[in-house]
Design a protein around this nucleic acid. Structure first.
Length: 424
RNA sequence: GGAGAGAUGGCCGAGCGGCUGAAGGCGCUCCCCUGCUAAGGGAGUAUGGGCUUUAACUCCCAUCGAGGGUUCGAACCCCUCUCUCUCCGCCA
């Protein structure tokens, strides 16, 4: 959620910024609603004030043993007027809330303009794209040959976009997760955390998935209402919902492995082959809660932490700064890391690292006490994949394959593979 | 799942339907005294919002787990829900 004060003081700026995202914001209807809000709120509070002071007078008169009937008669008329004003105000506030919750974050000034991914800005490339003296297979063919990836079985058990991994390839995914967790804890200073994989509506609203993106979620239960998490970002960031964090505790850095569940509504026909886009996948997520002045640097650091995993695995990748149109709803600035997939002959997203600034924090009421002011102020939140394990698995498979269709285990994963050097 | 108890400010803990946004204590901050690993005295110390061109102060509104209700007036009475604790049952 954006700062309501910004809307009142600099509506032109808001409009201009939202335009960058091609977000259709109508200032006139906002101004009209805000005027009604102000009007009705002031009126309501005046009525409440009157009721309170009159009630107090009744109490005092009663205390002195005076006849309070005349005073009671005077307040009679207040009841209905107050009730009407209160419910009108409630309606307007709900309307305002709906409006505000549907408005995306303001983009960082460095975010390039552009409506679609072709305007994304490549920041850097790392690693050498491997040269094969044979035609490299993609992970689907490799996985079938190695009898370790079975999409039909996934579809039989659940539906399309589910997969079953078996044997050394299943272990390879686990090894990747272990490596990531170990590196982020030991080398990057994150606290490992384990969280619920179902989240309530309040939590999903806090991080921005609800109310606007309910169609992307799997609802797991109606009583109580719970959704399968689309990313560990949701439960982990919600650790600080309605919390005032002590300044000394910042920054908070959490790493969390979890399965992620996405309905992929609207992705029909996209990436139907292989493990690129699944309803369920494993991911190691990095989350940081920081002081506002530190978030820009934290964003750079967090992205480097994700990059370090790719470097450790010696997987070629490039770093992309997403353009205005491609940046997510809640994010103000996002770097994507794209890993080279020889089977596809292209770079594909394996990590997305975002600075949400105070957008999530405002929804979450996640604050810290600023020692300089003594007041609670909103924190900044960030997160990034470090990395998506399913995609890391296929990246390893495709980059480390040989002419016989075997997969060599990357050196960094050897300690996690029980002596196995090749999957064949 | 069954039975019972509870939910108040950073913590502990009072609270009669009206003068309680909340006694008292602890903690913390500042000041005074003292002067040295003690003690004493004083002041302050919840959050969100509104009004004000902005900000601070004053002021006003809301909040004592959440949501309804009764009432001129609710932390206090009634209802529903949530959570926590104890006991029983079940259980990876």
């Amino acid at each position: 959620m954006l700062d309501p004060r910004l809307f009142r003081t600099d509506l032109d700026f808001v409009k201009e910024q939202l335009n960058r995202r091609s977000f259709n914001f109508n200032p006139e209807s906002y101004v009209e609603l805000e005027a009604r809000r102000k009007d009705v709120q002031v009126k309501t509070q005046e009525l409440q004030n009157e009721r309170n002071s009159r009630s107090k007078a009744i109490g005092q008169a009663k205390g002195k043993g005076e006849d309070v009937q005349p005073l009671l008669d005077q307040v009679q008329y207040l009841g209905d007027a107050l009730k009407a004003a209160e419910s009108e105000l409630e309606g307007i506030q709900a309307e305002m809330e709906t409006l505000m919750e549907g408005i995306p974050n303001i983009l960082d000034e460095v975010v390039p303009e552009g409506k679609s991914e072709e305007f994304n800005l490549e920041i850097s490339r790392w690693g050498d794209v491997p040269e094969f003296d044979f035609e490299p297979k993609d992970h689907v063919d490799l996985g079938a040959k190695l009898k370790g990836i079975d999409f039909e079985l996934g579809a039989k058990i659940a539906s399309s976009r589910f997969v079953v991994l078996s044997g050394p390839l299943a272990r390879l995914q686990r090894a990747l997760i272990q490596l990531m967790l170990d590196m982020h804890v030991a080398e990057h200073g994150y606290i490992e955390t384990y969280v619920p994989f179902l989240a309530n509506a309040e939590s999903l609203r806090g991080t921005g998935q609800l109310p606007k993106f309910e169609a992307d979620l799997f609802k797991a239960s109606n009583d109580p209402v719970l959704y399968l998490i689309p990313t560990a970002e949701v439960p982990v960031t919600n650790r600080v919902r309605d919390v005032i964090v002590d300044a000394k505790e910042l920054p908070l850095k959490y790493v969390c492995h979890s399965p992620c569940f996405r309905s992929e509504a609207g992705a029909y026909g996209r990436d139907v082959r292989g493990m690129i886009r699944q309803h369920q996948f494993e991911k190691v997520e990095l989350v940081q809660i920081v002081r506002p002045e530190d978030s820009a640097q934290a964003h750079e650091d967090l992205t480097v932490h994700a990059e370090n995993i790719l470097k450790k695995l010696k997987l070629p990748y490039r770093k992309i700064l997403l353009c205005a149109g491609d940046t997510g709803f809640s994010s103000s600035k996002t770097y994507d890391l794209e890993v080279w997939l020889p089977g596809q002959g292209s770079y594909r997203e394996i990590s997305s690292c975002s600075n949400f600034k105070d957008f999530q924090a405002r929804r979450l009421q996640a604050r810290w006490r600023n020692p300089e002011t003594g007041k609670p102020e909103l924190v900044h939140t960030l997160n990034g994949s470090g990395l998506a394990a399913g995609r890391a698995l296929i990246a390893v498979m495709e980059n480390y394959q040989d002419a016989e269709g075997r997969v060599r285990i990357p050196e960094a994963l050897l300690p996690y593979m029980g002596g196995l050097e090749f999957i064949e």
